[in-house]
Write a protein that binds this DNA or RNA. Structure first.
Lengths: 355, 355
DNA sequence: TTACGCTATGTTTTCGATAACATTTTTTGT
DNA sequence: ACAAAAAATGTTATCGAAAACATAGCGTAA
């Protein structure tokens, strides 16, 4: 069925080795021979067998990715960054998707990748320090690179500056004179979410501001929406919401809007990630920007960097900056007092004119 | 360096074939021997070499996916569906990402997949009828499955009911008494976009309604936003916007809101796809729902279905239904007339009370 | 002219695992 | 207890390509 290079060799009237030389672009082949072989290849529609190549060559020039669900936008962007950078360095990629809640499954997938002879593995799944170190130990691999793992973990990693970013969100809201905060985190397994939460709490406690409530979301808009509904049902006052990603913030905005609560006048909202869509929310969302693609790219860059650059027992580690992006979902708080309704009406008129 | 099954055989004191038997779960092995081998495997951390296995077995149990950028949410969901279904049938997957605008590149990627000995290939890239048929012809493969290819194409395919879905969007807007339509399509290379556009135009021409303007977007929110800005700049009246996907519709809503145009009272908007977020837009978006995940799943199901089910020279083809989802971005048109401002004010009051 | 060295090509072995076949050991029936 | 069947294990060949090695052909310098 399948055309092998033996068929090509026969048709071209040369040895198999010569075929191999042609396909690998060796220079010590006559132009005439090369042509004959190429003609035979075309005629037969010959496609080399990668398994055989890998087996024979011993190395695969392949990079494995263990990742969360790519339906999450940020995850997909990271994977894109990894793939692109790997490709630019002549590496193919194998992608394997896992849930974050099953450590054994993750190990299985890594085993699977190793059985495919990948040269490197990028792990883009929230792991604890213990888990990450355990993986490196168990598989005795220096060729692991982790994304978003706790900072003091003794492995190669690339992280976003979650904590610092979260703090800058708080500082921004404090500058807006906000004082009653609702926090909406991501799933507690997520390292990124944990770090962001830590940043919020740390900065808030410094300034002695009140945390009215904390909710745990699942990154989806709906969980943000439900959190705020619950908060409103409880009739607790709040004037600021910190959200661990932009999608949940969309849900937050939706709920606030539904209950006639004005953003940013009454409540200010800050998201995290700066996904493309967030500039078009109603109102456009203030958020903490991070570059997912660069995260993925840097992971691969560091991994492929020649060993000399890395000193002794040192690990390859990098923390990428985040950036506060101010849009219309935050503003200086306006004390409405007795004239609340009147003010809101004026604001409405103002809005009309603003067009 | 690498541990092979020879090392395992030596350590366990058996032949390599016995090791193979154990790893493949053959039943004709003594418990004692099995244990010895398993112990050796564990001790050495042996991981089988997939290349060697595939080479030896001749088949790979692998399915290749050629797909658009997974950063597009719908694409990622389709890929998920494919992977999940493949996995459930014991197939691994190899993912390769391409731009839709380079047909040669697509061929290269397919060649690459074939060189990895994939048993099947799912193509999730917008292709013309000619391109799809050409691929099947060039690679002489019955094992192709295409997603969202024009309906009369002579290949295996799974499609969403784009045209019919688009028509139902128009009918809904007509029922809302809308008469001046703005259309925002996806990129013209996209089959899905083309079919949707065809549906809109077809249904609109039947009812003799006016198409005020047509814009070509790139699926991103920004392109929807810019289209509407341009439309408003031209000061052309319109009371309905048909958008080829929900993300662009987000941009549309944003622009309308920015200019103080009320949705749905003044302008109604219908999207396409029903992504999770669209239920939380401001206002929640009426849209045409399709199940991306099922699209991917069905593609694989049909592909793996035993040949007998498929009659003679017939192709495996399936069209999945879409579904009109009515939310708040559409409503019966209200003729404002002279009392426009007054009415709008009442509406505002009503909204306040609605909470 | 001959010997040396280069280039172009052919032959053999190898990669790791398995299929096909061969052999040994165990079980079973009478 | 012994042959025949069945089960467990070992041996050899094979997959497709490439690396390592071998050889043939040719030009060139002495």
């Amino acid at each position: 069925m399948a055309v092998t290079f033996k068929d090509v060799a026969t048709l071209a009237g040369v040895s198999t080795q010569t075929v191999s030389r042609v396909t690998n672009g060796a220079d010590n082949v006559t132009d005439l021979t090369r042509e004959k072989v190429n003609k035979a290849i075309k005629e037969l529609g010959y496609i080399p067998n990668k398994s055989a190549q890998m087996l024979s060559r011993g190395k695969s020039k392949t990079l494995g990715i263990v990742s969360l669900d790519i339906a999450l936008h940020g995850v997909a962007l990271i994977v894109n960054g990894v793939r692109q950078q790997a490709h630019d360095n002549g590496y193919g990629t194998v992608l394997s998707i896992v849930d974050s809640d099953n450590f054994e499954r993750i190990k299985d997938e890594i085993r699977e990748l190793l059985s495919q002879q990948v040269d490197y593995i990028v792990v883009n799944v929230p792991l604890t320090q213990f888990m990450a170190e355990e993986l490196v130990h168990q598989f005795q691999q220096l060729n692991f690179m982790f994304i978003d793992v706790p900072e003091n973990t003794k492995v190669n990693y690339v992280c976003a500056e979650h904590t610092e970013g979260a703090k800058s969100a708080v500082r921004h809201l404090l500058a807006c004179k906000r004082s009653q905060f609702v926090l909406i985190t991501g799933p507690k397994e997520s390292t990124g979410s944990t770090l962001r939460y830590a940043g919020w709490v740390d900065e808030l406690s410094k300034s002695q501001k009140e945390v009215v409530a904390t909710y745990e979301g699942d990154w989806d808009a709906q969980s943000g929406y439900l959190s705020i509904r619950e908060q409103i049902a409880k009739k607790r006052e709040f004037d600021a919401v910190l959200v661990a990603n932009d999608q949940m913030a969309l849900g937050v905005l939706c709920a606030l809007n539904e209950f006639g609560i004005r953003v940013p006048e009454q409540v200010s909202v800050v998201g995290f990630d700066n996904i493309n869509d967030s500039a078009f929310f109603t109102p456009p969302l203030s958020t903490i920007g991070q570059s997912f693609v660069e995260l993925g790219q840097q992971a691969v860059k560091l991994l492929l960097e020649p060993q000399e650059t890395v000193e002794g027992e040192g690990y390859r580690q990098l923390i990428l900056p985040t950036q506060l992006i101010v849009r219309s979902s935050t503003s200086l708080k306006i004390e409405l007092g007795d004239h609340k309704q009147e003010i809101l009406d004026y604001l409405d008129k103002a809005r009309q004119l603003l067009r």
